[in-house]
Design a protein around this nucleic acid. Structure first.
Length: 477
RNA sequence: CGGGACGUGGCGCAGCCUGGUAGCGCACAUGCUUGGGGUGCAUGGGGUCGGCGGUUCGAAUCCGCCCGUCCCGACCA
């Protein structure tokens, strides 16, 4: 549990080390499969709860569909099967018997859900269907990294059906905004939102919208996606309803997901050379109480530390009392910094005498003393400040790393020297997009959805043709 | 999947070139000591060197194949 490689020296190494040293995850004997350890899983639980609250508040209900999908189902939507087939894991044997039809371990659940929806939906009165599921997913990725890309990962996937195209699009965008809100309000990760180019969209969607964040090494990370599936799947799976005019119509569908990858974003956006810095809203432990062990501390300091921890717990905070005898205070400080605890509360003999405690912020390192009687008010306020402080810091970084490129030379120079997002005009042509990707490794992360934000009179940064939209380009994870 | 690096107690490494059955630091256990930023000392337990095969009297060391990890690309949430 020593010496973390500095972020600036080797970002990838720093990332892998901090994941392990903070005990968020660990590797297993199977390639690309990791254990999410209790400290990491607690983060996921907090993210999940925040998301789940919002999904339900927006009118959705949770359900659970099977892990396996018959091969023939996956094949019903041509683009879908083509997009996912390279990374599907198959079950071919059950017990000792060879299966007649092999089963895919779900890489996403549109196919099985589509099949069930066809059975359940008959009338416009059945619509909208607003179902979400929390599930595990398997995609046989060639290159894996803890949280960012693993063979199996956890996520939620929403699958909705609507009467009209307009309603469907509205749902897609409502969810996009929901994701933005979770990222910014809970994870303290500022994001760009917008649509994807056609080449980057979900296999089988009409349009994909995404929430993109900027990691502190200047690479972008997709935090969530919201797809307008149009009628692609309803036609493939025959999901029809009789509308208000007594004609049969195919439903309009959306699907959307957010994954355990968000934990990777939390690490890469907020972490520093001492380890993790979790935003209080999703931190597994919000306050750690460290008694300063000197002399007869167990009789004097420890009871005061217990009382402080208890009172904060009673106020609804997630509090850990680190009363271990085998570790020194300094050791504990470092360890809890590594683990990202937002606020440390130190109580020593001097404090007990003075009826106070020392509060140390993880985000800034700032120390202050507070009267024990005031902790109930001061600690929650400080946690709010830390949450806001992390957001402000990340936002300043994002804004400082969005740069406009007038021409291709400038575009390339920015990506070479500074990275971050480059905002540039694009003609809408796939050839230009592909060329930019090949030459700079940058892809279109999002094209802002609002007319005003994407409108441009500048020529395409690649070909010089008429610019159709302003797009945000970046190298991405 | 292409290029590169690596695989030796839990972790990080040395030893390999010039074969002779393992060593260091941290961690761990015990005791004392210390304690407001990773305390110090002593004692002790733990590996047969990623796997398989070959060469050899003898392999961590040489050769071949395989597996895995990390980095850089192509693919992806």
């Amino acid at each position: 549990m020593k010496e973390l490689t500095p972020k600036s020296e080797d970002f990838s190494k720093w990332y892998v080390e901090v994941v392990q040293k903070a005990e968020l995850a660990d590797y297993t004997p199977m390639k690309g499969m990791m254990v999410i350890r209790p400290h990491g899983y607690a983060v996921w639980e907090n993210v999940r709860n925040a998301l789940d609250r919002r999904i339900k508040a927006a009118g959705h209900v949770n359900a659970y569909f099977p892990l396996f999908i018959p091969e023939s189902f996956l094949q019903k939507e041509a683009e879908h099967v083509q997009g996912f087939s390279p990374e599907v894991a198959w079950v071919t044997v059950g017990g000792k018997e060879e299966l007649e039809e092999r089963l895919a371990v779900r890489p996403t659940s549109e196919a099985i859900i589509g099949h069930m929806y066809a059975k359940w939906i008959k009338s416009w009165r059945d619509l909208p269907v607003l179902i979400n599921q929390w599930a595990n997913i398997v995609r046989w990725e060639k290159v894996t990294r803890p949280f960012l890309r693993t063979t199996e990962f956890l996520w939620q996937e929403g699958h909705t059906c609507h009467e009209t195209a307009e309603e469907c699009e509205a749902e897609t965008l409502r969810i996009l905004d929901l994701y933005r809100d979770v990222c910014e309000a809970e994870l303290a990760v500022p994001v760009l939102t917008g649509r994807k180019s056609l080449s980057e969209k979900f296999a089988g969607a009409s349009m994909t919208y995404a929430v993109e964040a900027l990691m502190s090494d200047g690479k972008a990370l997709q935090m969530a996606t919201s797809h307008n599936l149009g009628q692609h799947f309803s036609k493939a799976f025959d999901i029809r309803f009789e509308d208000r005019n007594q004609t049969l119509q195919y439903v309009w569908q959306t699907s959307w997901g957010m994954t355990t990858r968000t934990i990777g974003a939390l690490i890469m956006v907020h972490g520093d050379d001492s380890g993790l810095r979790f935003p209080p809203r999703v931190a597994p432990v919000q306050v750690v109480v460290v008694p300063i062990s000197i002399g007869n501390w167990k009789e004097t300091v420890l009871p005061a530390a217990r009382a402080a921890a208890e009172s904060l717990r009673a106020a609804g905070l997630r509090v850990d009392l680190d009363a271990r005898e085998e570790a020194t205070p300094g050791w504990k400080f470092s360890e809890h910094e590594m683990r990202g605890v937002p606020l440390r509360l130190e109580i020593g003999p001097r404090d007990v005498k003075a009826g106070q405690a020392v509060l140390v912020r993880r985000d800034t390192g700032a120390k202050e003393t507070a009267r024990l009687a005031d902790l109930g008010a001061r600690v929650p306020a400080l946690l709010d400040e830390i949450q806001a402080g992390l957001m402000a810091q990340a936002k300043a970084f994002l804004e400082a790393n969005i740069r406009d490129a007038a021409d291709y030379a400038e575009f390339k120079a920015i990506l070479e020297t500074k990275r971050g997002f480059v905002r540039a005009a694009w003609c809408g042509g796939e050839a230009c997009e592909a060329r930019i990707k090949a030459e700079t490794m940058a892809t279109i992360r999002v094209i802002p959805t609002e007319e005003a934000a994407s409108k441009t009179d500048r020529p395409c940064v690649s070909c010089g043709g008429a610019g159709q939209a302003l797009a945000y380009f970046a190298r991405a994870y």
